[in-house]
Nucleic acid binder design. Structure first.
Length: 561
RNA sequence: CGGGGCGUAGCUCAGCCCGGCUAGAGCGCUUGGUUUGGGACCAAGAAGUCGCAGGUUCGAAUCCUGUCGCCCCGACCA
């Protein structure tokens, strides 16, 4: 393709609305353009790559027996009422104003609609149905370019089975297909077991990519693959020390000491000798939560332990409950339920608040002085702690969700009456699974993982072109003629070539554009080298350059360095 | 929905606090010429109802009110 005739609007300057690298580069290199918040046009070069991603997805979905559909984006609201999801989605669901239609944010309802009355016998199953289609969600805050949009492209698949064993098989097939898809796209990812949230159903796994732009926080062990959402992640951390001699408790005047850091500095002690108190409300009653040192309370774990929901106490409530303000609260003589993190279990000679402003208590032996305490895992795992499975270092970081596979079960088939007759002539609801991939996210994540200060660094197989052919001075007849010949030859060899044939662009301009666009190989034709019958090859990733005989060009291209 | 920021030419921004001649710069664009190995140079030019609406004022990009949009943090997130 000739650059002079292509619509590839590159930008030298960073667009004001973009913040994260992939978003900036996707706009700067003319792949996408924003139309409105969370709404993007895929420009020709970007769409070319997007199609390559979709082709890979198609191949792998077809390989596990998937059949491609194209479901409508516009759905009758009535179907969504039947599963209760108009209410469940709430404001996220787009409603059409002049008809009783909604814009589909996913397609379980439509799949169930088609299955009903058509998939009627156990002999009709299993089925794997999928599509690659635009989805609509009225996100309250679109962000990070195409990573969270109001309109996005999703590959969604659905399995229909007669029993849970069938569902297990379909689920396993998708797990395999997803790994193949992300591997082929050249994306570094990991898999996290997750709760299935509002989708309903039991088991689910998320395919994640590490990224500062991510919306989830996960703990991950590279060594053994242990990965968990930070809300539930466990880790091995050093607990409170049990000294052979337990001191007796004593009160210490600690004027203006409010935090653990200040307490440690004031008493010249280590964090591991302190216990931090937090007051939460659970079912209307206060609960003191005691953590080692500066460990943060994990509210998800706390809620799981107590059952139901919890909320932190307001500052004005603290005084009433404890007799002190935040910073001086402690477990000794605390009149309500007290629970503590496992790391404090054997602690003695600890320091904590005295429930009296500006006073702390030292010499605490929790077993002796607060025997009523119940112990649970309540802390949030942090980087550098050890993996509970293999003991290696655990890393906690932000991640983007690329794909999610769910065992739905019979939620939708029961709601919509999608039943079949089994071997015994007994009527049963179809067992469903649901499997999504954010196609635009695959694109953005690839860019997040493959760029440098000059631009995107494409690699097989997603690269939009194999080669960028650069004619440095196209007004020079020898350069122009040689470029034309190389262009035709390379295409004949089967390469996809982007030919920078612009007449008026200067050399530096073309070099910078080529680096920004990021094709794996640049073939550079300039007067200087051409006089000696040579052209230059530049490999985008390494930056390595090589002057080669024009006659040997195609051969050289077959042996990349 | 809470907090913060921004809206001036295709893009990036200055001007606004402290109202006053004809609203600016760089990049990009058009025309002509010179250039061509790391975002060239010279000359001439086109391009903005200063987001929108109302108000204050002799006078508003600038002050006030409202409204819409965009970005960031948080909440939310199959």
């Amino acid at each position: 393709m000739r650059l002079s005739k292509s619509f590839i609007p590159t930008l030298k300057e960073v667009p004001a609305e973009a913040v994260i690298p992939s978003h900036i580069l996707m706009i700067r290199s003319g792949l996408v353009r924003q139309v409105s918040a969370g709404i993007y046009t895929w420009l020709p070069l970007g769409y070319k790559v997007l199609r390559k991603i979709m082709d890979i997805i198609r191949e792998e979905m077809n390989a596990i027996g998937g059949q491609e559909f194209h479901f409508p984006g516009l759905n009758p609201r009535e179907i969504w009422e039947q599963t209760g999801r108009v209410e469940a989605f709430g404001d996220i669901l787009f409603h059409v104003k002049n008809r009783d239609y909604v814009l589909a944010p996913t397609h379980e309802e439509i799949v169930a609609y088609h299955a009903k009355g058509s998939v009627v016998s156990y002999k009709d199953m299993p089925q794997i149905w999928y599509q690659i289609q635009t989805k609509f969600r009225n996100e309250p805050r679109p962000r990070s370019g195409v990573i969270r949009g109001r309109q996005f492209i999703m590959k969604d698949a659905y399995t229909l089975d007669k029993d849970t064993e069938g569902l297990d098989r379909g689920y396993a097939l998708h797990d395999k297909a997803y790994r193949a898809i992300f591997d082929r796209c050249g994306i570094k990812y990991f898999v996290v077991g997750a709760s299935s949230g509002a989708m309903g159903g039991s088991k689910s796994e998320e395919f994640m990519v590490k990224s500062a732009a991510g919306e989830d926080t996960v703990a991950y062990c590279e060594k053994c693959g242990y990965a968990a959402n930070a809300e539930v992640a466990q880790s091995v951390a050093v607990g409170a020390v049990h000294h052979p001699e337990s001191k007796t408790i004593y009160e210490i005047s600690t004027p203006d000491v409010k935090s653990i850091d200040e307490l440690c500095a004031f008493l010249k002690i280590d964090e591991s000798e302190t216990a931090k108190s937090r007051i939460y409300f659970h079912e209307g009653k206060p609960v003191l939560v005691l953590m080692l040192g500066n460990d943060e309370v994990n509210e998800t774990k706390l809620a799981n332990v107590l059952g139901g929901t919890v909320r932190p106490a307001h500052p004005d409530e603290l005084k009433e409950i404890t007799g002190a303000d935040a910073g001086s609260i402690g477990p000794i003589n605390f009149p309500h339920r007290t629970i503590a993190d496992n790391l404090l279990k054997d602690g003695n000679n600890l320091y904590s608040g005295a429930n009296k402003n500006d006073y702390h208590i030292g010499g605490i032996d929790l077993k002796r002085d607060a025997p009523q305490i119940e112990y649970f895992d309540l802390r949030t795992a942090e980087s550098g702690e050890k993996c509970i499975r293999c003991g290696s270092d655990l890393e906690v970081f932000k991640a983007i969700e690329l794909g999610h596979i769910f065992k739905l079960g019979t939620k939708y088939s029961e709601a919509l009456g999608v039943n079949f007759l089994d071997e015994n002539g007994k009527e049963k609801p179809v067992v469903m699974g649901s499997y999504g991939i954010g196609v635009d996210r695959v694109f953005a994540c690839f860019v997040e993982q493959n760029y440098d200060e000059r631009g995107i660094v494409w690699k097989e197989p997603l690269n939009p072109f194999d080669i960028q052919l650069i004619g440095l001075n196209m007004k020079n007849a020898a350069v122009a003629d040689t470029c034309e010949r190389i262009y035709i030859d390379l295409i004949a060899e089967g390469y996809e070539v982007l030919f920078d044939d612009r007449l008026d662009a200067s050399a530096g301009f073309k070099f910078n554009d080529a680096d920004l666009l990021g094709m794996p190989v640049q073939v550079i034709v300039g007067e200087k080298n051409l006089k000696e019958g040579k052209v230059e090859l530049k490999y985008r990733k390494s930056g390595q350059k090589k002057i080669v005989e024009l006659a040997n060009l195609t051969e050289e291209l077959q042996h990349p360095v």
